Computed example of a mutant assay.
Amino acid sequence: MSTDAPEAATADPGSLSNRVARLLGVRIPIVQAPMTYIACAQLAAAVSNAGGLGIIETSSPQGRADLKRVRDLTDRPVGANVALAVRRDPSVIELLVEAGISTVFTSSGDPAVMTGLLHDAGMTVVHVVGSLRNALKAADAGVDGLVVEGVEGGGFKSARAASTLVLLPLVASRVSLPIIAAGGICDGPSMAAAVVLGAEGVQMGTRMLTSRESPLHENFKNAVLGADETGTVMLSVPGLPTMRVLRTETAERVLAAGRPEVGLDGIPALYFGGDMTASLANTGQVAGRIERVERVADIVHETWTGCRRILAEASSRADGW
């Protein structure tokens, strides 16, 4: 079992211990997003070993198997995601308990369905929201923290969602829970911005799916690296949930036709076979800022130390105003 953080993450990032770090039991308040098929044991363990919190998805059979396999790769805290639109059966809690999971990120549904049961099992519950209304609803349901995700993020979204710049400070002004910001975050500057807007931690998806430890095919990673700031598109067509995807030829055809031409069943061929025409490539708008594939340890370390440096520099500049 590997328990030592990789070399790039061994430097003490500082004595800051905020509510998100304490809630998750981690040294660095950076979370890896629970992307279906991608949030595997290898990626989650790399994030946790670097001092953050890796997440295992439970929507796929592979993800559920990885709940146990990840313990061969790390003994640090690892979380799990339960997408309530996919898994509403309380039997999933038994699986989480057996795997030694203590923090669960719920998403895509009513948090009241599972929060009480997860608390009864001794677990911390963090719910993903994309609106103030849902944040208030989650707080009323008794969750312990929130992931506040702006429309910049990849994957399924509300067509009427707000950007992180608007949504995050709005939720922070109305909810007293610890907040993890998501959507548009990939490095120190974007993490520092999230902190200023009211977050105490961040979640990164697109940045992690392009990491060296990500299981994605190189074709997908290279497509992200080649994207510019307009390289994603929101698709809202009959028969498909609204989602943010890479602006591939397939996505452009679907957008122009106004109807789905590919199904989500082609995702494995896209993710692992590298066939960029097989399905739609869920990716965040921040793809336009990602320039290279790096080790997870370097991503976590550089994001955290960069954030702290930028906040210190901004404080120093503000003193002269």
Rank of each mutant, 00 (worst) to 15 (best):
K157R: 15
A182L: 01
G130I: 03
D120V: 04
V151M: 11
I101A: 00
V147T: 08
V143P: 05
G155Q: 04
P178S: 09
A182K: 01
V196I: 12
G130W: 01
T164K: 02
G201A: 09
V125E: 05
E200W: 11
T115D: 02
L136I: 03
G145V: 06
L170I: 08
L146D: 07
I185A: 11
C186M: 11
R207T: 00
Q203T: 01
E98T: 10
A141S: 14
P178G: 06
M208I: 03
D110N: 15
P111N: 02
A172N: 11
R174S: 11
V202I: 15
G130A: 10
S108I: 04
S173N: 12
L96S: 06
H127G: 03
T115Y: 00
E98Q: 13
A161F: 01
Q203V: 00
G109C: 14
T106M: 08
G188W: 05
V166K: 00
G100R: 07
G155K: 05
H119V: 05
S108D: 06
M191V: 02
S107E: 07
T164N: 12
G184L: 11
A199Q: 04
T115K: 02
Q203W: 02
R160C: 07
A139M: 14
K157Q: 15
T106A: 07
V147C: 07
A135E: 04
L170V: 09
G142K: 08
K137P: 02
A141I: 11
T106G: 09
V171K: 13
V148Q: 05
G122A: 07
E149A: 14
P189S: 11
V97T: 14
F156I: 15
G145E: 08
G142V: 12
A181S: 13
G122H: 04
M204V: 03
V195I: 13
A162L: 15
V166Y: 00
A194N: 11
M208F: 15
L96M: 06
S131D: 09
P189L: 09
G154T: 01
L177V: 09
V113R: 02
G153R: 14
V147E: 10
A172H: 12
I180D: 04
Q203D: 03
G142Y: 03
A121M: 12
F105V: 15
M204D: 03
A138W: 05
S107R: 08
A162V: 01
V166C: 08
M123K: 10
E98A: 15
R207F: 00
G116F: 04
L132M: 06
L170E: 15
L132V: 01
G150H: 07
P111D: 06
M123E: 09
L95G: 10
S173P: 04
S131F: 14
M114W: 04
D140K: 14
G198E: 02
M123S: 03
A159M: 05
S163N: 12
L118G: 06
L177S: 08
K137R: 13
G183P: 08
F105H: 08
I179H: 11
R174I: 01
F156M: 10
G205Y: 05
R207D: 09
